[in-house]
Amino acid sequence: MFMKLFIKRLQNDIPLPKYMTSGAAGMDLYAAVNEDTVLKKGEIKLIPTGIAISIDSGYEAQIRPRSGLAIKHGISLVNTPGTIDSDYRGEINLIMINFGARDFIIKRGDRIAQMVINKIETPTIVEVEVLDETSRATGGFGSTGL
């Protein structure tokens, strides 16, 4: 049985999320800004998508940057990937940032991020006094070489 993604359109002229190719993992999300919005270099802004979703328990929606906007303009998301939990029913908003060299204009209906649906596991939490041994042990950042 396939899971269903229920989408509530909050603004009728904003397209529903869409897979752009048959092999795409993520579906594009669109900007639901009321007017052209300037994202100045170094600036962070909350950008609405005009949709809310309902997904089955045991799933999440991950919100990720679009690679084309990242490479061409330095546009990303501050909390990437962002997680939309299965019990959240509010509008999906994106915390966007401009790492680029120039200001970036977001227009209503622009494709600005992508959403990937993932199955998640909810583990049973078990507190222990000692963890199992590995060859890496507590080696942190850079401990495995370049």
Score class of each variant (00 low, 15 high):
residue 7 I to A: 07
residue 7 I to C: 05
residue 8 K to P: 00
residue 8 K to V: 00
residue 10 L to A: 09
residue 10 L to M: 08
residue 10 L to V: 02
residue 10 L to Y: 03
residue 10 L to H: 03
residue 11 Q to S: 04
residue 11 Q to L: 10
residue 11 Q to A: 05
residue 12 N to K: 07
residue 13 D to Q: 06
residue 13 D to W: 10
residue 13 D to R: 04
residue 13 D to A: 05
residue 14 I to Q: 09
residue 15 P to Q: 09
residue 15 P to T: 11
residue 16 L to H: 03
residue 16 L to E: 15
residue 17 P to M: 10
residue 17 P to W: 00
residue 19 Y to C: 04
residue 19 Y to F: 12
residue 19 Y to H: 09
residue 19 Y to A: 06
residue 20 M to E: 15
residue 20 M to N: 07
residue 21 T to E: 12
residue 21 T to C: 01
residue 21 T to P: 00
residue 21 T to R: 06
residue 22 S to T: 13
residue 23 G to H: 07
residue 24 A to T: 06
residue 24 A to Y: 05
residue 25 A to H: 06
residue 25 A to W: 12
residue 25 A to P: 05
residue 25 A to F: 11
residue 26 G to I: 14
residue 27 M to P: 00
residue 27 M to Q: 04
residue 28 D to A: 08
residue 28 D to E: 14
residue 29 L to S: 04
residue 30 Y to N: 08
residue 30 Y to L: 09
residue 30 Y to V: 06
residue 31 A to P: 06
residue 31 A to V: 07
residue 32 A to H: 04
residue 32 A to R: 00
residue 32 A to G: 07
residue 32 A to T: 04
residue 32 A to Y: 00
residue 32 A to K: 05
residue 33 V to R: 01
residue 33 V to T: 13
residue 34 N to T: 11
residue 34 N to Y: 03
residue 35 E to Q: 12
residue 36 D to Q: 14
residue 36 D to W: 10
residue 36 D to K: 14
residue 36 D to V: 10
residue 37 T to N: 05
residue 38 V to E: 15
residue 38 V to N: 12
residue 38 V to K: 14
residue 39 L to P: 10
residue 39 L to S: 08
residue 39 L to F: 11
residue 39 L to H: 07
residue 39 L to K: 10
residue 40 K to E: 15
residue 40 K to R: 15
residue 40 K to N: 15
residue 40 K to P: 01
residue 40 K to A: 14
residue 41 K to F: 09
residue 42 G to A: 10
residue 42 G to E: 12
residue 42 G to V: 07
residue 43 E to Q: 15
residue 44 I to L: 10
residue 44 I to E: 15
residue 45 K to Y: 11
residue 45 K to R: 15
residue 46 L to T: 11
residue 47 I to T: 11
residue 47 I to G: 03
residue 47 I to R: 00
residue 48 P to Y: 11
residue 48 P to C: 13
residue 48 P to A: 13
residue 48 P to K: 11
residue 49 T to G: 06
residue 49 T to F: 00
residue 49 T to R: 06
residue 49 T to P: 02
residue 50 G to K: 05
residue 50 G to P: 02
residue 50 G to D: 13
residue 51 I to D: 07
residue 51 I to K: 02
residue 51 I to N: 02
residue 51 I to W: 00
residue 51 I to L: 01
residue 51 I to Q: 04
residue 52 A to C: 06
residue 52 A to N: 04
residue 53 I to A: 08
residue 54 S to V: 03
residue 54 S to P: 01
residue 54 S to D: 14
residue 54 S to L: 07
residue 55 I to L: 03
residue 55 I to A: 00
residue 55 I to Y: 01
residue 56 D to Y: 09
residue 56 D to V: 02
